[in-house]
Design a protein around this nucleic acid. Sequence first.
DNA 1: CTCGTCC
DNA 2: TCGTCTGTCACAAGACGAG
DNA 3: TGTGACCGACGAA
Length: 421
Amino acid sequence: MGIKGLAKLLSDEAPDCIREVELKSLHGRKIAIDASMAIYQFLIAVRSGGPNQQATMLTNAEGETTSHIQGMFNRTIRYMTEGIRPVFVFDGKPPDVKSHELIKRREKREKAQAALAVASEEGNVEEQDKQSKRLVRAGTKENEDCRKLLTLMGVPVVTAPCEAEAQAAALCKAGLVYATGTEDMDALTFATPILVRKLTFANASKSMVQTMNYNKVIEGLAISHDQFVDLCIMLGCDYCDTIRGVGPKTALKLIREHGNIEKVIETIDRKKFVVPESWVPNEKKLDAQSDDDDEEGVESPSKEENNGIVDTEELIPAYVQARKLFNEHEVLNDIELKWKPCQAEDLQKFLVDDMGFNVDRVKNNIEKLQAAYKANSKPQTRMDSFFAVKANPNAAKSAAKRKADAAKAKAAVSKKKTKKH
DNA sequence: CTCGTCC
DNA sequence: TCGTCTGTCACAAGACGAG
DNA sequence: TGTGACCGACGAA
């Protein structure tokens, strides 16, 4: 998931869009969070068993995994006590074009499965660990568990018709939440006004989070929204391939110079930069003639399969389809988000009876949750004015760098201005 | 702060 | 030569609190 | 899965 190298490119080229702020500055905010991503992280990270023995998921009496419940429960309570009101957004059906990507992932899973079997045979604990983590997936069961947990906690849950990031961005655009909380830079491509990263509690004391501002992205890169989407596609997204030989620097330069992908393809030297076939479906025969290298170590018996999948949409360039997914993604519109008091009794039953949690801990945490809910539903005094916002340390770094690169920067700036005005 | 525990 | 891209590798992805 | 560090390849200056 995500846009390859976008975070780095932004910190280099548009540092003003990034800010490091204290967690406290989000007090009183509503934030949309990609649930599937969080669940995945919990499944991987929340394990038991010290060094020298096989790490194992937390489980209830029936042997069902409870790691995700543990993680989700703790984190949600923490959000609430920090005065943050989370809404968790679940993935719906992945778009068709993503199937290439999904097939690749399945193949990798199967490989890991085999490797795990071998490692078990050999009793290689470390290898078992590694491979079993590769097999982790947030399945239906885990999603349902978390939906139930969150509902009992009184936290709103939204199931997206398609991609969660797109839905979260839509909530943010509609003003229903302040920001999208995710590590996935896709959210920016979906034009979420604010993106919050590192919304986690690794260092409990001085927890800083990173915010990215969509308008400042556009401003800083000095390109339009449509150009930004094209840029993201060229950097590399889940929906299609990229032009070989074009990295972040070149992609930005080309988009600034030519305005869109069509013009870029027309203009660039196609021998030097290999445009994927799927981007120019009408030119297949021409491309086949080029004596370019196709033996890149990785064999691709999947080529025929890929052709079979696209079929009816074969004549639409892949980047056009990707564009459409970013700009017209299917989302739910009339949503009401309500944070309710938790259903203490049922919640305790669920956690203790079904999931095997410790009664006292659960009671304790439910009290915390209730206290936090109470505090949150009081009239809000936003803490903005009390906590100054610190500029992104990277900004200073790249500012210094820009001084050093003054000559180069000047050229870029003058280009910006001519483009913009 | 590090380390062990949560289930 | 310098910048840029690509491949490869290693590594880490939670939260909490007792001591 | 993805991200960063490192490195060799390659084209531009």
